[in-house]
Design a protein around this nucleic acid. Sequence first.
DNA 1: GACATTACTTACATTTTTTATAGTACCCTA
DNA 2: TAGGGTACTATAAAAAATGTAAGTAATGTC
Lengths: 124, 124
Amino acid sequence: MSKIKETSTNFANKQALADECPEVYAANIIGGQWSIVICSWLINGKLRFGELKKRLPNITERMLTLQLRKLEENKIISRTIYAEVPPKVEYELTKIGYELKPILKLLESWGEKHKALDGEKSAF
Amino acid sequence: MSKIKETSTNFANKQALADECPEVYAANIIGGQWSIVICSWLINGKLRFGELKKRLPNITERMLTLQLRKLEENKIISRTIYAEVPPKVEYELTKIGYELKPILKLLESWGEKHKALDGEKSAF
DNA sequence: GACATTACTTACATTTTTTATAGTACCCTA
DNA sequence: TAGGGTACTATAAAAAATGTAAGTAATGTC
């Protein structure tokens, strides 16, 4: 996360690929370590920061914040702040965010199928 | 790439998520910088190492090798070596690899739609 | 015998992502 | 006035992914 170095080869490569290849562009957007799980949870409706945190047991607050910010920047989720104390912030998928649903479904069933295929080894 | 450290928190987190979340498991498998483009090319039929390289203009041979190895380990592609000189190696999607097709399609159209939505800013 | 071809490998450097740890602000309650 | 709850931020360090540059093996051609 954090800022990417716009002079790096890596940046240039990502740009180039994303430019000519919408599926790579899409993958860049939803491809953080936690993005997909976050979206999966939000598909069922909005959640508060703390609620998300509870559902993502091992995530650090920093990571959760970073991923949410990235998703927000990319307009996958919206952030609503309630002027209360203690603070309350809700996250919800945007329209285009909700449109990830079929992709998540497919990924899920493909994943299950693949997992069944090679039960013994890990995915990394 | 390279070997992942099995004692790291990162490894544990990935494991845990992949275990309970098939879509994350799937994303881990197809989620390298170049994996998706490679699969996109191979969807149209098998290709040799050098042919892939030509189609992925800025990829280094090292990266291509690494990604192909990872895909092969995960049984997304198969590797056929011809006992010739100079060497000839062909890569082809496996059955489960070909089943990524609908996912790639959806990612592609979602990507296009998203890109149209926010034309001005980059995706990173 | 030098050179080209192909599909790699190796050592090393840099960049990017993820984790760890410790704060902050605000108000309410005890 | 101390402590609790919520949603963060700052800084540093570790880990992972990617890139750079050079080399290898085997054979055929010049």
